[in-house]
Structures are given as structure tokens and as C-alpha cells.
């Protein structure tokens, strides 16, 4: 444990990094599948099935990253977990209801009587909307230091809308890569329509963050620290410009660079996240509690870390395996021989 110096310093740092990576992976992965859910009302009935099929094999594992992130907050920084979640009691509740509605709708829309399908499609959309809005709201409240004032709630409402549009944007970008034909053309249109959400969202948080505290302001606007941060806005601007340019040429008949917008969008999320992490470090509850003050006992963190070093590569490995197995354009999801038989007889 003494290998890297004081374990009360490097262990909390390592866990903060692990938690950060989990949140980031969650935001990108569940971001696109929540986004696909948000696009449901824009799609016609056949497209709806294809939309769901494009995320069917992945959504469950994607949400597990949220459980891991919240689990790491819980196990590594218990006091912070308590403060953050009691402060965000209501939005957390709304998010949970959203995730419940959405998760069960995946199954019910395919298994309930056909007459109920529109209802479950609606529940799928509403669930995705509740989850996205509440996550955006929590993001805004977190940036504002978790205090409930009218101004903060107003700001959080804005970030709720921006993140939701941002999710629909990355969801649409996922669909460009994952679909073909008419739906792919629609996806290009939806991606164009959603990009402003991401730009405004990143912009709003970037404008607000330095004014939350003098400490962050100094980190941003005093030399040489400002230079460390400088690549982020430059890279972000370049990515937005690339997406804008690429979308004008998509979809191509040979499907070249169909994954470009998604990869660029994911990179944008990474830039925004790195900027936030850099600004708020070392605080886990903004300006109140640092990761070092709230960390669990080193011996407990160490026993988790040993397991993590073995298990995390395996998780990443079989997650990649799963994306590899389900590569290519989305096709209808079926594991039901009887539906197959019915379909064959119908044709």
C-alpha cells in the first residue's frame, strides 16, 4: 500500500478517477441510448422497432455504468454520497422513475398485446425524457453547489433542456452509424437538429463554472493554469466544425464515415467532462468536501482496488466483445421462434 506514497492520498485520487471514468462512460453510452428513446416520437412505426433494435443488446450494460459510478461514490466517498443524494432527492426520484419506465417498456412493447404497443412506446419516450431531464437538472445543480435557490433551479432547468437535446443529438449520431436507407437520412436530419443542445449546454456550463467560486475562476483565467485548459475549447470548436461539415455530406452511398459524427460527439462529451473534472478537483461536493476528506478507510479502498484491477479489464473486454458481436447495421431483434413462424406464414 505504501508503494505509491501515502495511501490516504493516492487511493482517493485513484477512486475519484475510476468514478470519473465510469460517469463519463455512462454519459456517452447511456447518453446515446437515452437519446434514441428521445427520438421515438419523430419516427414512424417501422422505424420505432429499428430504433429500439439498435440499442436492444446494449442498454442494460450501459445502465450498469451508472450503478458502478454511484456505487463507487457510495463505497469510496460515503459522506459525499449522502450529501449529494439527499440534496438531489427529488431529481433522483424522477430519474429512477424514468429509468424504470424506460427499462420495462423495452420488454413490454415487444411482449404485451399489440394494441398496447403505442402506450409502451409512449412510456419509453416519457421514461427517456424524465431520465435525461433529471440528469441535466442534477448536473446544473451540482455545478451550482447543490443549493436550492431560484437562480440555481433556473440554471438547472436550462442544463436539463440542453443535456436532453445533447443526448438526442448523440443518439441520432449513433443511428447514422447503426442504420441505413430512409431512417439513416432521418437520423442525419435529427443530428443536425440536436447539435445546438450540446453547444449551448457546454457553453452554459462553461460560462457558469468559473463564477461559482474564486478558486475555479483563478484556475481558468490566471497564467500558467489557463494554458492547461486552453486545448479543450479549441478541440471542442474543431469537433463541432467537423460534425457540421460531415453532416452536410451524410449519408453517403458507400456509407463511408457514417460513424464520424458519433465518434466526434463522444469526444466532445469527453472534452466537456475533462474540463469539469479539472475545474472541480479536488472537491467531490463542490466547495464543501474534497475527495480526501470524504474517502473511506484506505484498507477498504485497497481491497476494492485489488478486485477492480482484475475485474475492470474483463468488463471492458467483454463489453467490447458484445459491441463486436452486434456490429453492423441494426436488424430486427428476435429470439422468438413463434413470431418467426407467424412472419413466415404471413409472407
Amino acid at each position: 500500500m505504501e508503494l505509491f506514497g501515502d495511501p490516504a492520498v493516492w487511493l482517493p485520487w485513484t477512486f475519484a478517477a475510476l468514478m470519473g471514468v465510469s460517469i463519463l462512460i455512462y454519459v456517452i453510452l447511456d447518453g446515446f441510448d437515452l437519446g434514441v428513446g428521445l427520438l421515438m416520437p419523430l419516427a414512424d412505426d417501422d422505424e420505432k422497432d429499428r430504433l429500439v433494435a439498435s440499442i436492444g443488446p446494449f442498454w442494460d450494460a450501459n445502465e450498469t455504468w451508472l450503478v458502478l459510478a454511484i456505487g463507487l461514490l457510495l463505497v469510496a466517498f460515503p459522506p459525499a454520497h449522502g450529501i449529494i443524494l439527499t440534496a438531489l432527492y427529488l431529481p433522483v426520484f424522477i430519474m429512477l422513475v424514468g429509468l424504470i419506465l424506460r427499462g420495462v417498456s423495452f420488454e413490454f412493447r415487444a411482449k404485451a398485446p399489440i394494441a398496447q404497443k403505442p402506450k409502451w412506446n409512449a412510456a419509453f419516450f416519457v421514461g427517456s425524457l424524465m431520465a435525461s431531464m433529471s440528469q441535466g437538472f442534477m448536473l446544473g445543480m451540482y455545478v451550482m453547489g447543490l443549493t436550492w435557490t431560484w437562480a440555481h433551479v433556473g440554471f438547472a432547468m436550462l442544463t436539463a433542456i440542453f443535456l436532453t437535446v445533447g443526448y438526442s443529438f448523440i443518439g441520432a449520431a449513433w443511428l447514422i452509424g447503426k442504420t441505413e436507407g430512409r431512417l439513416q437520412s432521418h437520423a442525419v436530419r435529427w443530428t443536425k437538429g440536436g447539435i445546438w443542445g450540446l453547444i449551448l449546454g457546454i457553453g452554459a456550463i462553461s460560462l457558469a463554472t468559473p463564477f461559482v467560486s474564486i478558486r475555479i475562476f483563478d484556475k481558468w483565467f490566471s497564467l500558467p493554469e489557463a494554458l492547461y485548459l486552453a486545448p479543450l475549447p479549441i478541440v471542442s470548436a474543431a469537433l463541432v466544425a467537423y460534425i457540421w461539415w460531415e453532416l452536410r455530406n451524410l449519408p453517403r452511398s458507400d456509407d463511408r464515415r457514417a460513424w464520424g459524427p458519433f465518434i466526434a460527439a463522444a469526444t466532445l462529451f469527453i472534452c466537456a467532462f475533462v474540463g469539469m473534472a479539472y475545474s472541480f478537483y479536488p472537491y467531490v461536493v463542490p466547495e464543501k468536501l474534497t475527495i480526501y476528506e470524504s474517502a473511506s478507510a484506505p484498507e477498504s479502498l485497497f481491497i476494492i482496488l485489488i478486485g477492480t484491477l482484475w475485474v475492470l479489464p474483463a468488463i471492458l473486454g467483454y463489453t467490447i466483445l458484445s459491441y463486436y458481436i452486434f456490429r453492423g447495421k441494426a436488424s430486427d431483434l428476435k429470439y422468438d421462434i413463434q413470431e418467426q413462424v407467424a412472419n413466415e406464414e404471413a409472407t
Partner: peptide, 8 residues
Amino acid sequence: VFLGIMLF
């Protein structure tokens, strides 16, 4: 992860 492979 393996549920996805098992189902679909």
C-alpha cells in the same frame, strides 16, 4: 453484457 448475447 452476456444477457444481450444470450437474448439476441
